[in-house]
């Protein structure tokens, strides 16, 4: 954990506190100082570029363009929309340390049997040991919470190229929901270090040791904007997440149309009854023909499928889905 050094306001001596601490005791005079402010963590905001109307229009466009849901695009009605700012930890620095790895090796040996047939066999070789110094630049954006209900956001790139401004909490909270970070700095650091391990954990690794730390660390909480819209139809609610920077739909799940056989069940019933009320031979023949048609249409002749077809139980086609 990075430490911050302050001058004690009572005795003037230097004292340290860990990042995130709100109070610290001076080791020279014992006076406790309360630390206000954000203790070294920058809170940055990426301002939204898409308003509610544009977000709604994007959903309408998607519904009208794709899938079987386009026939009923107008049947979905907009209920409400909320602008959310989701916090992401951004860690920049240099991953410094070392890693040591012991790996099994195998080699192919060519041999010939008594008949002169050539064959190869795999022979275990000496374990390979490698030491490497790690000194790699690090720039990671990781969600400061679980945002799976909203979908995956490409924040890393956005935070690197878009203009960020300092978060004015009052102003932002007055017009949007500012989500609280629930993932701690320590966990974000661990994630950052995990992705810097060179080569990951390749096959054949039997032993691995590493000590990697982040130096020249710069830490910030970047708040990224998304629109959360609710659409309804027939009492059902369909949430949609939209990137409020580039207006792409991050996540939505609209159902397809219900598909139901309308004519076939009625025609089959009519055909069977027509046959049996005319003469038994015609009844048997038309029943057999109906069974053939059923098999051709549904692919099966089991009782539940026949009852479902006659009952008019609908099948759902693929709808519009993102994320």
């Amino acid at each position: 954990m990075a430490t911050i050094v302050f001058k004690c306001p009572h005795c003037g001596g230097p004292f340290e506190c860990a990042e995130g601490d709100r109070s610290a005791v001076c080791r020279f005079c014992g006076v406790t100082s309360v630390i206000s402010g954000d203790s070294g963590v920058h809170r940055l905001l990426i301002r939204e570029r898409v308003d509610l109307n544009a977000a709604r229009a994007a959903v309408r466009k998607l519904l009208a363009a794709g899938g079987d849901a386009r026939e009923s695009a107008s049947s979905f009605s907009f209920k409400e929309g909320t602008l959310l700012f989701l916090p992401f930890w951004r860690i920049r620095g240099i991953a410094t340390g070392w890693q040591w790895r012991e790996k099994e090796t195998f080699r192919e040996e060519v041999e010939y049997d008594e008949n002169g047939t050539r064959f190869t066999r795999t022979v275990k070789g000496e374990n390979e040991r490698s030491f490497s110094l790690v000194a790699a630049p690090l720039d990671l954006s990781t969600p400061a919470g679980d945002y799976s209900p909203y979908g995956q956001m490409p924040v890393g790139l956005a935070a690197a190229v878009l203009k960020c401004e300092a978060l004015d909490y009052r102003e932002t909270a007055a017009r949007a929901t500012v989500v609280d970070p629930l993932k701690g700095i320590a966990q974000a650091r661990q994630e950052a270090l995990a992705i810097t391990r060179v080569g990951g954990n390749p096959d054949g690794t039997v032993h691995q040791e590493a000590r990697v730390r982040i130096s020249s660390e710069w830490l910030a909480l970047t708040y990224y904007p998304i629109w959360r819209l609710l659409f309804t139809r027939g009492g059902r609610v369909y949430p949609v997440t939209i990137d409020a920077v580039n207006c792409t739909i991050i996540r939505c799940q609209f159902p397809g149309e219900e598909q139901r056989e309308r004519f076939l069940p009625l025609a089959l019933i009519a055909m069977v009854l027509l046959g049996w009320t005319t003469m038994p031979a015609a009844g048997a023949a038309l029943t057999a023909l109906s069974a053939y048609l059923l098999k051709w249409r549904t692919g099966t002749l089991d009782a539940p499928s026949i009852i479902k077809l006659l009952a008019g139980t609908p099948k759902r086609s693929v709808g519009v889905e993102r994320g």
Binding site: R236, Q253, F254, P255, T313, K315, R316, G319
Partner: peptide, 10 residues
């Protein structure tokens, strides 16, 4: 029911 609907539970 919106989720069930979207998952194809008819």
């Amino acid at each position: 029911i919106g989720l069930l609907d979207s998952e194809g539970v008819a």
